Simulated scan of single mutants.
Amino acid sequence: MEAGLLLIFWYGILHAFGPDHLTAIADFSIGKNKQKTLLITALFALGHGLSLFIFAKILQHIELSEEILAYGDMISAMVIIGIGIYLLTMVLTNRIQLRKHKHGDKEHIHIWFGKSHEHHGIENSSSFSLGLLMGAGGVRGMLITLGAVQGSSVDLSMVGLFTLGVMLVFFAFGLLILYINQSFLGNLKNVRRAFATAGFISLIVGTNILLG
């Protein structure tokens, strides 16, 4: 069983490297500070793991055709495309804002969408919800892996190890985005370029999933 659990953990790592997942993490983490970046990646991974667990449980009792399961990939693709369109719209309508201020000797940069600057947790809830939605796209591969380990039985500890593998990669990628945030996003021009690039890549990744 230990080898099987290691296999699940390893599959979580491999699964997290999907371009749709990394694109989603980048879209939500650009311009965020360290605490928000790590929190967003953790919530995305938790939402993703929970979604896969729910779908896996359902599919244990209901047989679905490959055509129906393929709709999971379509959902992931449409979510990524939607994010890309949203980011590009924000860039083209000049609705991405940046403000700098200091607390003592330390300079802080705030980046937000829209005209008013509000502190809220919408990014957190959105990243968790996005993880839930995109879980539909990975359920087939996860079921194959879990089935190889323990027949068709799926329990929470197995999905927990899968989520841990996903979270490990997401944290590492989140740290890369954090480095980009701290090193290159000190002015509004670079911020808008970063979001435009993320939006464009999102469209490419989502379209490629649909066409694939």
Rank of each mutant, 00 (worst) to 15 (best):
S76M: 01
H120D: 14
G104I: 14
I75K: 02
L22A: 03
F28Q: 12
K189M: 04
E2L: 12
A196D: 03
I68K: 00
H103Q: 11
L6A: 14
Q150V: 15
G49E: 05
F55S: 05
M167E: 13
M142S: 11
V139P: 04
G72A: 06
I96S: 01
D105K: 09
F17P: 01
I8K: 00
F9L: 13
I8N: 02
I54L: 06
A56D: 12
G104E: 06
H21G: 08
K102N: 10
S157R: 05
F9A: 13
F200Q: 08
A194K: 12
G147Q: 07
V159I: 13
L69C: 02
E118G: 10
F128C: 03
K32M: 09
V166A: 05
K115H: 13
V149M: 03
F173P: 09
M1P: 09
I109K: 10
L64Y: 03
L175Y: 15
I13H: 03
I109M: 04
A24S: 14
S126N: 02
H110T: 15
G72D: 10
G147M: 05
Y11G: 02
S126Y: 04
I85D: 00
R99K: 10
D20I: 12
Q182I: 14
V191Y: 00
K106V: 15
I13F: 07
T145R: 00
M142K: 01
V154M: 05
E63K: 02
L176M: 07
H21I: 05
H108S: 07
G212C: 12
L133W: 06
K57F: 04
S116V: 11
R192A: 04
V79R: 01
L46I: 12
M134Q: 05
Q35W: 13
I96V: 09
S153A: 08
L175H: 10
L98S: 13
G206A: 03
L39S: 15
N33A: 07
I80N: 01
H48K: 12
T163W: 01
S65K: 05
K57H: 03
S116G: 09
I122T: 15
H119T: 11
D105P: 00
F170C: 04
G47V: 07
M1Q: 09
H108F: 10
S157W: 01
F28M: 08
A196S: 08
N33C: 06
G160D: 06
V139Q: 01
S157M: 07
S65E: 10
K32Q: 10
K102G: 04
L161P: 01
T37I: 09
L92K: 05
V205W: 07
F200T: 06
L188P: 03
T23P: 00
I201P: 05
L164T: 02
M167L: 10
